[in-house]
Design a protein around this nucleic acid. Structure first.
Lengths: 112, 112
DNA sequence: TTAATATACATAATTTTCTTATGTATTTAT
DNA sequence: ATAAATACATAAGAAAATTATGTATATTAA
């Protein structure tokens, strides 16, 4: 796990990117996907995730669909066209940011 | 300029790395150095910078030396040995974080 | 020459964003 | 049966930034 401060500011970008690649995902699924893909290095907390998902829905960036699975409800989120545009912008901005930070900190990133 | 949320959490790393490379720098100098090195893409704000410098000093990570230049005072900050170790750890963590994010977001960073 | 900009520090109020804690409830594994 | 995992949600508090404000000197441009 990284010191929490590093991860700050990347939550929206992560959510939007994953929802750009998968037509629908639910909250818990997002937490597991991120945990798996990062070897546990990034773990989304519910207290941060759910309010952010709600906010993105209120802004029209995501839409929801509640599904009953067994006896439990599962709330699927899907990205809207405008959300897809925002996702792309956010990813581009983050890519640029990384390049800038590599220069500024004189990093030698080990790219697999 | 990046959306502010992205830069969050990187301030300490930036300060400590620059002070690892330069034996002493003052606050305003740090703002200008970062602005120059990033082509204006990252601009440290005084409201964030000064409280952070004070905190790092209180933690024994930085030491200060006030110098009179003309009629104005300039407060130079220098990194301590323990601070140098923390700087190195922070830079390593950030490098690892970048690698993780590149994987997670499937980025193709354009490395000069 | 005077007005604006740059240099140089500092702090307070507010906002944003996250963590931590708490709550409910079902399902699966031990 | 009990614990852990699945699945949602929200509220209180902390952390870290932004924005605004304040003081003061030095330099540049009108």
């Amino acid at each position: 796990m990284y010191s929490s401060e590093l991860i700050k500011g990347t939550l929206k970008t992560i959510i939007l990117k994953l929802l750009s690649e998968n037509e629908k995902m639910y909250g818990y699924e997002l937490t597991q996907k991120v945990k798996d893909m990062t070897g546990g290095k990034i773990q989304l907390t519910e207290g941060a995730l759910y309010p952010t998902l709600h906010a993105l829905e209120n802004q029209g960036i995501l839409t929801t669909e509640v599904v009953n699975v067994g006896n439990r409800l599962r709330k699927y989120y899907a990205i809207t066209p405008s959300g897809r545009k925002i996702a792309s912008e956010k990813v581009n901005e983050f890519t640029d940011f990384i390049a800038t930070m590599i220069t500024l900190l004189d990093l030698k990133p080990n790219l697999g």
